[in-house]
Simulated assay, not measured.
Amino acid sequence: MSTKLTPKIILEGTRLTQKTDLAFALNEHPRIVGPRRYRYHSPLVSAEWCAFTDFPWGRGPVNYAPEEEAVALETYATWARLFELNRYYSWIVDRFHVSTQVYQRQARGAAPDFAWLERRLRPLGFRHVLCWRRPETFEAARAERLKVSGNPRQYDDLGPFIREQELYRSVVRASALPHLELDVSDGDVARAADRIADWLEATGGLSSPWGV
């Protein structure tokens, strides 16, 4: 029997770093989830879902208000328990607790502690992929995003995204989870997915720590 593929990848990074496109590509990548002869449902998780408000682009586990912190932390604990119960599965996560740390630090000067969460994620084999791009490439990335964005004004000022990258880098490097820093400046999603597959293969990140 071949080894079961159960990668657990958390994609992090500022806006316009192709995290969501990459999440979909990873979830159909034959070296990461195996060959697929037909399409079926795959788990794509995101803490960026604006699930705390009943209007678009509202608040959620990343950008929660101070009075919603307990709800946000319980959400993360719930995801952690689901991951633990379904450990022999592949999970692709588009933004998670690092995005929360970055947002809350910038918006409120807060420093939510997620050491407890990483102590639960690490034994399951979770890893960070930090997506970043060279500053001079943000303009072209914005032009592409504006073709499809339902909220284009959020991209009026690229400066915060460029500055935010260093904060993401510092938080990811301080994490207890293994990480890969992935340059997506060329916009080639397929190539980026291949690089993640290479890294996972080289570091044992494609299968469960317990075997099959």
Rank of each mutant, 00 (worst) to 15 (best):
R87A: 15
Y64Q: 01
A70I: 10
A190W: 02
T78R: 03
R195G: 04
T17F: 11
H97Y: 15
H179N: 12
L206E: 05
K8A: 00
W116I: 06
V171N: 06
A65M: 12
W116Q: 04
F114D: 01
G211R: 02
V62S: 04
R134C: 10
A141D: 05
H29M: 09
K19S: 13
W210M: 03
P160K: 12
L130I: 10
G211V: 09
P123F: 10
T203P: 05
S2Y: 04
L177P: 00
I9P: 01
R120W: 00
G34P: 03
A107F: 08
R173L: 09
A72V: 04
R134N: 14
H179V: 08
A107P: 01
Y38H: 13
D113V: 08
T75W: 15
F161Q: 14
I92S: 00
L200E: 04
Y103S: 08
E136G: 06
L82H: 01
E84T: 05
R145G: 05
R39G: 00
R15M: 12
T137Q: 13
Y89L: 03
Q104L: 11
R169D: 14
A25P: 01
L82D: 03
Q101T: 12
R169G: 15
Q104W: 10
R119H: 11
L146T: 08
P178R: 09
G13L: 11
P160T: 13
E28M: 10
D183A: 10
D188G: 06
F138E: 07
G34R: 06
L180V: 09
V102F: 07
L146A: 09
G109S: 13
F126W: 07
G13E: 13
D21H: 12
L22W: 11
F96H: 12
I32W: 06
R122C: 02
W79I: 01
H179Y: 15
H128E: 08
G125L: 05
F126Q: 07
Y168P: 01
Y40N: 08
V184M: 10
P66W: 06
P209R: 12
H29Q: 10
T6L: 01
L146D: 05
R87T: 02
E84L: 05
E68L: 10
R15I: 09
S99N: 07
K4N: 04
A174P: 07
A190E: 14
G58F: 07
E144R: 15
Q106E: 15
Q18G: 09
A23T: 08
R120L: 03
E144A: 15
L158K: 11
V33N: 04
A192K: 02
A174W: 06
F114R: 00
P152F: 11
S208G: 01
P178H: 08
L26C: 03
R195C: 07
Y155K: 08
K19A: 12
M1E: 13
D157F: 12
D186A: 13
W57N: 14
I32C: 05
L124K: 01
Y88C: 06
G150Q: 14
E139I: 12
Y38N: 02
